[in-house]
Amino acid sequence: MQNLVTVTNLVKTYGTAPNEVHALCGASLEIRAGEVLVLMGPSGSGKTTLISILGGILTATSGSVQIAGREIVGLPEKELPKIRKDLFGFIFQGFNLFPALTAQENVAIMCKLKGVKNPNAAAKELLESVGLGSKLRSYPSDLSGGQKQRVAIARALAGDPQIILADEPTAALDSVSGRNVLEIMSGLARNRNRAVVIVTHDPRVLEYCDRIIHIEDGRVGHEEVRNNLEAVA
């Protein structure tokens, strides 16, 4: 299985001495295409900081993050939006849909941002792929939590990014909706060979993942291999 992301000795420090806080203290890991990787750990362990740096949203203090062979640590601030746009799809705990836009418009705006041709048609196709073909004109306020998260998944898939970063995607969902969302996400990895990275506390996620990396005190702790990752590899 191909390494898509290589993180080496990543450090992130907030503030200055003597009040500095070390959110990440030399974290190293690899993310592979076609896998569902779960980052687990207690609150404050550095999971969100790690996913933010991986996604080019936050800059690291030191270390290296190579995505498809390209180093992103140390890139000028103005180059980061393009990295985020071209390589990543984001899924958030709070969905972060635009309330004024319909489901189709929410996805289409991202397709347009990513330069997808015929964004409305692409958005329709993506929503159909997550089972929301009948909700194209619905506003987020008219959708259930599970449906909102599926719209968010469709939006994350706009432009067909190589890596999906999801922050607690099932935290706000009931068990049925949560499983439904996880099935879609693991399908992305299996069927479309995308890397799916999930930050979560939710034990329901574990049965859908290939690897679990435990983050403790800003460091990569032990790693568990689940499912048939070795066979896939």
Binding site: F90, F92, N96, F98, L113
Partner: peptide
């Protein structure tokens, strides 16, 4: 503001 934050996170430039 949160929506603009989401747009930025997803790759929108300040110009957009």
């Amino acid at each position: 503001l949160k929506e603009f934050g989401t747009l930025k996170a997803m790759g929108a430039t300040n110009g957009q």
